[in-house]
Design a protein around this nucleic acid. Structure first.
Lengths: 250, 250
DNA sequence: CGGGACCTTGATTATCTTCAATGCTAGTGG
DNA sequence: CCACTAGCATTGAAGATAATCAAGGTCCCG
């Protein structure tokens, strides 16, 4: 039962790394995942994602690079970003449709069609992939619940710290973050629409986190200078990211 | 393909009515549902729900009467109610565990064990029940996404109006609400923990809705005096409850 | 060398929270 | 039958958090 080595790379790696963070996958499993993903597409920033395959049927997409969002809009233009999609994520168009969300690329985004992962293979690899996908689906649920708690009961400062911890955990699982550095290529406006705050207030909150030495942030890169204090700042909710959540990765 | 008549009643009726609001069920399907539910339990207000069956294995519960909640707690005592469970709802303990929520009765709550609904029967009835349960699961997802939008981008006034519309829709589906009246046996503190507001502010917001003639509210009963204006007050998000959401009920 | 998108800052205002009472109602025990 | 209590709703006042408004400033790109 080998694990993917850190030096191996390919376009699809974030997806398999991410899946492997939930269920132990063999090298053969990972090769299957990498081969199952096809049809690379590029969506420029600020364009809507298209899920239709050649037959016009919406299919799930795996994000290879770039960030996208699933958002709700109100009549007066207010936006709430419900889901953030980053490399390694799988975007399910039926979920978006059911929940009434629209999806758009926030930065230039490259995707692969992931439908083949969901077609069940009647062998051990298929069983493990299916299990990993179920675990991934549960992780999406956990994030949504956490999002509710964040918006309902955390202050701006706590919310921001908590989101940073979530993104750090996700990027580590996808093999995209080193111990303390994450990529954060979002505008502060996109951040504000995720955190339920105004742009100005997000700006000030980030400055406060910088001033107090919890993070560094510039040019789309964010450094977690003090993870312990970040967890504390997230109202002791952030513990979950380093604790129970990660322990499921063995 | 008969539908349950309005005069028929039994303890389990809200559950079958609720399922039938998503997928057309025959009288035989409904009889199956009513018979599948067993082991009535009563949880006094403010007690934790217990899901273990006689073998000690957690099983889903169907709410027969009373209201319960799935909540997250912070170290300092802040509470966020993520899910409200009312008659007709099915509570899945594995979902609660996965998302780190605790469940407690808000009022005296009676439940039946619903595990038998999930054991697949290899016939038409089984297929329809399974389809209805999937639709129910999707509805839970839609509610969570809507909760995120509500907390992230709606004002206190809009949030409250939107929640009232959601509860009205749910109770109508379960056959528990007449055209304009819903039951709302929650303390304002529970409401505030769902809406992400302080108790005082919930109180003032409800008064404003009363003063402006959108609702009447006393003794656990809430009357929607003006559904159109409530929808408008919900920031044009409330439309979804009367529109797309209900259209799936045929 | 513009122009545009994004970030930053200060001043002002609004929304919502917190604190502290007070009132109301139902249940309890004398 | 009547205090007495406990939980919940309500009110007012004060304060904090976050939104809004209005300018600059920076950087990148054509």
């Amino acid at each position: 039962m080998q694990r993917l080595s850190l030096t191996e790379t390919s376009w699809a790696t974030p997806i398999s790394r991410w899946l492997a963070s939930y269920v132990a996958l063999t090298a053969a499993d990972i090769a299957f995942v990498e081969n199952a993903l096809t049809d690379m597409r590029t969506f420029p920033a600020s364009t809507d994602l298209r899920f239709e395959d050649v037959a016009g049927i919406p299919q799930p997409l795996a994000v290879v690079s770039g960030w996208a969002a699933g958002s709700a809009f109100m009549a007066d233009g207010r936006r709430q970003i419900v889901s953030l999609f980053m490399p390694g994520d799988i975007i399910d168009p039926s979920d978006l449709r059911a929940t009434g969300l629209t999806s758009a690329a926030l930065t230039t985004t490259k995707t692969l069609e992931a439908a083949a992962l969901f077609r069940s293979r009647d062998d051990k690899t298929g069983a493990r992939i299916a299990e990993a996908l179920r675990a991934y689906g549960r992780a999406v649920q956990v994030r949504r619940v956490r999002h509710i708690v964040r918006l309902g009961r955390l202050s701006a400062y706590e919310r921001t710290a908590d989101l940073i911890l979530e993104l750090h955990d996700r990027q580590q699982r996808a093999g995209l973050a080193d111990q303390r550095i994450i990529s954060l290529p979002l505008t502060q406006e996109a951040l504000s629409d995720h955190l339920g705050l105004s742009v100005v207030h997000v700006n000030r909150t980030l400055q406060q986190l910088r001033r107090e030495g919890l993070i560094d942030y510039q040019g789309g890169r964010l450094i977690l200078r003090d993870r312990a204090r970040l967890s504390a700042a997230a109202g002791l909710l952030g513990e979950a990211y380093g604790g129970a959540a990660l322990s499921g990765s063995a």
